[in-house]
Design a protein around this nucleic acid. Sequence first.
DNA 1: CTCTGTGCAAAGCGTTTGCAAACGA
DNA 2: TCGTTTGCAAACGCTTTGCACAGAG
Lengths: 140, 140
Amino acid sequence: MTDYALLLKASGLKATFQRMNLLERIEVHGHMSIDAMYEEVVKSHPSLSLATVYKNIILMVEKGVLVEVPITGKKSKYELLKEEHIHLVCTGCGEVEDKPKDSIADNLFTSITQQEDFMLNKQEINLYGTCKTCQVALAS
Amino acid sequence: MTDYALLLKASGLKATFQRMNLLERIEVHGHMSIDAMYEEVVKSHPSLSLATVYKNIILMVEKGVLVEVPITGKKSKYELLKEEHIHLVCTGCGEVEDKPKDSIADNLFTSITQQEDFMLNKQEINLYGTCKTCQVALAS
DNA sequence: CTCTGTGCAAAGCGTTTGCAAACGA
DNA sequence: TCGTTTGCAAACGCTTTGCACAGAG
């Protein structure tokens, strides 16, 4: 479990109750939308304002603490910054699962962009489909 | 150049002036945001309504004529449905360039998802960075 | 103590909706 | 002609902003 206070301070942000809780909820779920975060954190902190959530998410993305995960046809989710990986996005239940991105993919995309003189900065790989659970549910 | 009237009819949509022009502008640019489409088409059709653009884009995405391309931190762009490919997204000028996705990547992601019993439907690969033109501009 | 962060309420925008008129087939 | 599509204007809902107060360091 990450030390959120340390993480925030390292990014020049104060370790407030709101931020700590947002980070904790995001880490537990893996990926969350703004609404979902608000709904969860407001339970333990009823005075929480949605505006505060927005402000903090924007700030923490700018500072590199969080990463935005845009999803086709839906609202973005956010995750903690970590090693680059692949997202398996279930179009049934909306859940996002992480999978490690091996070096094959990495080298492949590095070489593709080098051919174009494109200075590669970030690889975003989203695989859309139906997760195991939803497949079972559909079969019945 | 695609036959837009045919494309629309094949999808069960009437070939209206608005739709033909939207498709033509999208094909010429490769990828466009809703606003950009409206700006361009309204020139040749001043009575065009933004609501019509929205309605049509939503409809054409549903029918599979268009594909949404979500972009981190920005509004989605739309492109004509074509063979799966990779997007090089320049964070400087916002331009999106297509690159063919070879079979190596394809097989890789197919096997990754099979391990998970995830029924893969669509591969979305966005590589963010700085295009050649913007690199030159930055250097000066 | 000082500066940052929070909450509230209002403002701002992008997007959607309903409906009458116009249009495509 | 008949069902679809358009344009307009209003409604909606998410996101942002300004400001006074509270809180972290």
